[in-house]
Design a protein around this nucleic acid. Structure first.
Lengths: 213, 213
DNA sequence: GTCTATAAGCCGATAGAC
DNA sequence: GTCTATCGGCTTATAGAC
């Protein structure tokens, strides 16, 4: 039994995600969110008090999936399985929440000042656990000696891009919106590059010149 | 002999880049740009007519460097040298124009509606040339059969991230702003992953499982 | 809980003197 | 070319009837 309250809050959150994703925080108008949700603008303030608070609630929706996807890296003690599952999990959540993922990216790009500090700390601690995991794999020779922090940044940027760059994707692939094939190609390409570059038995002799840039 | 006109236009462009980068188009106020440039707000309108026009001029500053960096991929017919130089060039321009690079990223994220159509076409054509170059390398067996469009997207996202995500970098590395070491580590890591994943003699047996995600 | 009408203030843009 | 003063419109947020 979903109350009127729950239903409306969901409608507003969904509408807000889409508007914020399309135009960014500052350019979206609360009126447009209300129209998209099919409610009067005053209702939006009745449920969420302010535009900024609504925005924070949208961001919050993405934190839990993000933390869960991140923990996947350390589920087994096998770098190949871990990295592969981690990349797949990140692509999956970006795909399941395309609008919020974009809002989140935009927020990070502007410095993350509207992301509640508590969230930042949770995400940071989670990232540190993954860095430690990578470092331990490297120490035990299970992973090539790549910089673990940069490897993480790299995976983040790659998995984020596919949902974010609407028109770049469209221009390049000739389609309007990333489809099933794009996502599996993305996962395949990223996985291949990451594993090809960091798993010892897959790494050939990496000459010193590669690090001379 | 730099005229007053030239000097002021430069001051305004620089100030605008920083403000737009820090807050995004919609959240930056023309008054703040003027204050940062050390001029009266009216002068800004005298030189650039409107906020949107000023923004477009900021974006324009990045197109030429971007096109030049892109062409580097095809300078020789060697995938290793080409990819390595291309990654280095993209990191270099993002580093030389950190603010504009960020403005550009933000604009792309929001759909690129304010990027003049002429620019879009130039960038698209340039990207297509690179895709064709990669495809020819693949056809001749110089490069592993990775999807060339996804490889491009991948390099774009990776090279962009290091300058954009100020606080993500800061949180992870403990520094406020990416420094020399970060940039060379970035170049090294990206180059290593890309070359390790796509240059045939560096690629081990890539099992089918890698593509099953 | 819902909705209309309106307050309050901010910000892009300009007029017009110097 | 420069600068002050100000307009005019737009947008968040709320008051208050239903």
């Amino acid at each position: 039994m979903t109350s009127i309250r729950q239903r409306n809050q969901r409608l507003i959150l969904a509408a807000a995600s889409e508007e914020f994703a399309a135009k960014g925080f500052d350019a979206t108008q609360t009126l447009d969110i209300a129209l998209r949700a099919g409610l009067a603008k005053a209702n939006l303030y009745y449920y969420y008090q302010s535009k900024e608070n609504l925005y924070a609630k949208v961001l919050l929706e993405f934190v839990e999936p993000l933390l869960e996807a991140s923990a996947v890296l350390r589920e087994s003690d096998d770098p190949v399985a871990g990295l592969q599952a981690y990349i797949a999990a990140r692509i999956r959540i970006a795909r399941e929440h395309p609008h919020i993922a974009k809002v989140f990216s935009s927020e990070l790009l502007l410095g993350g000042r509207q992301l509640p500090e508590e969230c930042r700390d949770l995400l940071y601690a989670e990232a540190q656990r993954n860095v430690e995991c990578l470092r331990s794999w490297i120490d035990r020779g299970l992973l090539a000696p790549v910089d673990p922090e940069h490897l993480m940044l790299f995976i983040w940027s790659a998995t984020r891009t596919y949902t974010n760059l609407g028109w770049q994707m469209a221009h390049i692939t000739g389609r309007q919106v990333p489809d099933d094939g794009d996502f599996s190609q993305a996962a395949a390409t990223i996985t291949r590059l990451v594993l090809g570059g960091v798993v010892p038995e897959r790494v050939g002799a990496i000459g010193g010149l590669l690090f001379a840039t």
